[in-house]
Amino acid sequence: MKRVLAFLRRRRDESRARTDGGSTESRSTARRWLDNDFVRSAPFWGPPFLLMGFFVYAAIGWNFLLSLTDYTGFGGADYSSLDFENYRRLFEDPAIWEATRNTFVLLVVFTITCLLIGLGLAILLDRQVRFGRGFRTIYLLPFALSFIVTAQFWRWMYNVNDGIVNQFVGIFGIGPYNWLGNPQIVLGAVIFALVWQFSGYTMVIYLAALRSIPTDQYEASRVDGASTLRMYRRVIIPQLRPAMVSASVTLVLFALKAFDFLYAVFGGYRPRQGADILATKMVREAFGQSQWAYGSAIAIALFVLSLAVIAPYLYNQYTRGNL
């Protein structure tokens, strides 16, 4: 690498070291090409791009190719006849629609709730409450635990007979509910558990953003007679937008990875009716039934869904010139 750089530099210096005022028009095309900033910087960004291209985008591309075959069972895929049969099947499979709906609900409700709760907690902690640091650690702790561990916790807590959640709602004379068994509420129960785990993370992101706002602004709005509520609504929260955007992207990605959590809660990749998401359906088709091509098609659908969610963010960054 060093040699390549030295060589490039030498070539550049050679072409530039014309102090006699002569023009550089005589430079060969090759030399001009080598002199190009783009080429000169290639050794730096090229390898990561090659690796990414290789391991991420090529894998996605290959997956798409697989989804066009009718690859099932063992042996290799036959790439000679490609069609969109699996996608047609996708549209006709009611289970896919249900899984897509659940995935979407999970994505949206989980992300928004986490953002709201995280914001609330961050504002409370930013107001110098007593034992603030302790609370911060407590709120953040669930985030440090793996899905497998928290899923086991929630399995116990949601138990119909002796789970703490039913004991708690029992105090108010309601329940007991079959949190993980009733198709009507199981998705809500899963989202609640995920929110519990991730709102601490959003809290930390918000808290960092809050801490970076100069105190002058709090004081200035006080002097101008703003109430606390008004101050946050008009002055502080609008400044948290970048934090919100980056936190929501991370949350969306975690929501798509809820597979681990569902796998651990339901002891396999067949969640209860009402809690099936595209990720579990995909694994079930591919690895449970060896329907590799169909599984790939579901994976592409999931990929498109996540792109659709991320796209506004990417577009936003693009218009701001960050991309």
């Binding site: 190009n36 090229g46 090659l50 291209g53 290959w62």
Partner: peptide
């Protein structure tokens, strides 16, 4: 000024394509 960022994107795209071809 010297290289528009689009050029980087194009270059990156090309590299990605090479990567895809290589892996396949």
């Amino acid at each position: 000024k010297t290289i528009p960022r689009r050029a980087y994107l194009k270059g990156a795209g090309a590299m990605g394509a090479i990567g895809v071809a290589g892996l396949s």
